[in-house]
Design a binder for these strands. Structure first.
Length: 104
DNA sequence: GCCATGGCTAGTA
DNA sequence: GCCATGGCTAGTA
């Protein structure tokens, strides 16, 4: 996939595999890509390649079940997109991973 | 040297 | 609040 590392390609695939109405975490995506400590790489991919690869960036959250983006910098947008897909999100961005977490 | 994390530790109440 | 993690990018030589 255009000069990206094998790991990066796997991260992209893992993100794309999360279906609408479900969420996954940075850590889980990293695990799926074979990098147990690669959460930071998932951050990097989402930050820099979301629009290029049409990634469902809004479906990736922190492993504590919260949205990572700060208020005023995308948090409201992320919450709105998730609610459109039927995910219950509290106003401060908390999601029940037992109910909505996606496991490949 | 950056990045939308995560896990562990110090240090306060 | 600190720092490991790992690939990418800007910016220097």
């Amino acid at each position: 996939m255009l000069g990206v590392t094998e790991y990066t390609a796997r991260i992209i695939d893992a993100i794309k595999a999360v279906p609408p109405g479900k969420v996954s975490t940075y850590r889980n995506i990293a695990l799926c890509a074979g990098m147990p400590n690669g959460a930071r790489q998932v951050v990097r991919v989402l930050h820099s390649m979301s629009s290029l690869h049409n990634l469902p960036w809004h479906r990736i959250i922190k492993s504590d079940g919260r949205v990572a983006l700060p208020a005023g910098y995308g948090k409201e947008m992320q919450i709105a997109l998730l609610r459109d897909e039927g995910v219950a999100v509290t106003d401060d961005g908390k999601i029940d991973l037992d109910m909505y977490g996606f496991h490949a």
